[in-house]
Every structure is written in C-alpha cells, then in structure tokens.
C-alpha cells in the first residue's frame, strides 16, 4: 500500500470536485469501513451489502458536485447517501418497511476478526473510548444515524414519548462527543 497522504477535509473536497481519483482512493480507504458498517447493520446478506457499498461509492463519485460544503461535513453527506441507498435497495427487494437493525455485537466481532481494517483510522481505539456510552444512548444513535428511523419510529421502538426523542438524542451525542475528546 502506498504511503498515505493526509488531506484536510477542504483539500479532499476540492480534489474530489476536480475528479481526482487519488483523492477518491483516499476517501475510500478512509471511509469504506464506516459506510460498510452502516450497510451491515441493515443488510444480513454480505453479497448484497458489497453491491450496495460499491453502488454507494459510485454515487458519491458521480454525484460529487451535488455535495454542498455549507450544509455540513462530507461524511454526513456520504452516510446519508449510503443509508438511503441501503433502505431503498431493501424496499425494492421486498423487505418492506420492516427494518431490522442489528446490535453492534455482530459488528464488534467483525471488526476484531478482520485484520484487514484500514489503518488510516483506529476503529478499535475509538471503540475503547466509547465503552462508557450507555446502551440506550447507543441504541438511539444507531436507530437514527445507521437505521434511518424517523422520530415516530424511534418513539415507538424505544417506547418513549415523541417529544423526548430530541432531548435523548442531544444527551447521547453530547456524551459521545465528551468521550471522544
């Protein structure tokens, strides 16, 4: 593997807007695992998951000019594309609306088993920092951020009032940020 250049997000975005394949390779190396993890939360079929990952990156590459820096970070845009694509694919394959979002126990084992995790980021290192995150805080983040659930669906899933979803999410993310500092 070639030595990795480190790009700032602004540099990366500019290169990608100019359709720089090297920058896209960097983007892939850096984020493929994270996006794959999102897909695998929703899709059990690994072959299907691989297809969706490929399709998601093709969309990111082909539609890069529609990314608007002013609306948020690049990864947020990428995860939105990936999550929507995954949900659409499941619907088109007859999975209906009933979505299963797997707990992160499965992905934990995947991460530890698979030594091929790119080295550009320390997934296990970050995981260690998250040990104190409460299960219900993980759950609400997973449902929304990984599963694409709506506030209504989360309210029903967690058995909490609709008005509480916003405060729960805020608390969970504050806790998350605190641990990552």
């Amino acid at each position: 593997m070639s030595p990795q250049t480190q790009y700032t997000e602004a540099e990366l975005v500019e290169l990608l807007q100019n359709r720089n394949q090297q920058a896209f390779a960097y983007l892939y190396d850096h984020y493929c695992g994270a996006l794959n993890g999102v897909i695998l939360r929703l899709v059990e079929d690994r072959e299907l998951a691989a297809d969706i990952l490929q399709e998601a990156f093709l969309k990111i590459w082909n539609n890069f000019s529609s990314y608007d820096v002013s609306k948020g970070r690049l990864f947020t845009w990428m995860i939105n594309i990936t999550r929507n694509l995954t949900i659409d694919t499941l619907r088109s394959k007859g999975y209906k609306k009933q979505r299963q979002i797997s707990g992160d126990e499965n992905t934990v084992s995947m991460v530890s088993e698979n030594s091929a995790v790119p080295e550009q980021f320390d997934a296990l290192g970050i995981r260690k920092q998250l040990v104190n995150l409460k299960p219900e805080q993980r759950r609400i983040i997973d449902l929304a951020y990984f599963g694409g659930f709506t506030q209504d669906e989360i309210s029903r899933e967690l058995g909490i009032p609709l008005g509480t979803v916003k405060t729960r999410m805020r608390t969970a993310i504050l806790e998350l940020r605190k641990m990552l500092q």
Partner: peptide
Amino acid sequence: QLGLENYALAHAVAPEAGAKEKLFAAI
C-alpha cells in the same frame, strides 16, 4: 457531525477483498 463520524468509524467493518479494485474498475 464529527462526533457521529467517529462513532461510525468506530463501527467500521472492512469490505471484502477486491472491493476497491472493482469500484475503480467500474469508475
């Protein structure tokens, strides 16, 4: 967003071997 991004990175799962080559071949 950076916090959530790191959360996602923490749950990263490496794609199967050859996925990157396949992607670039498609591009």
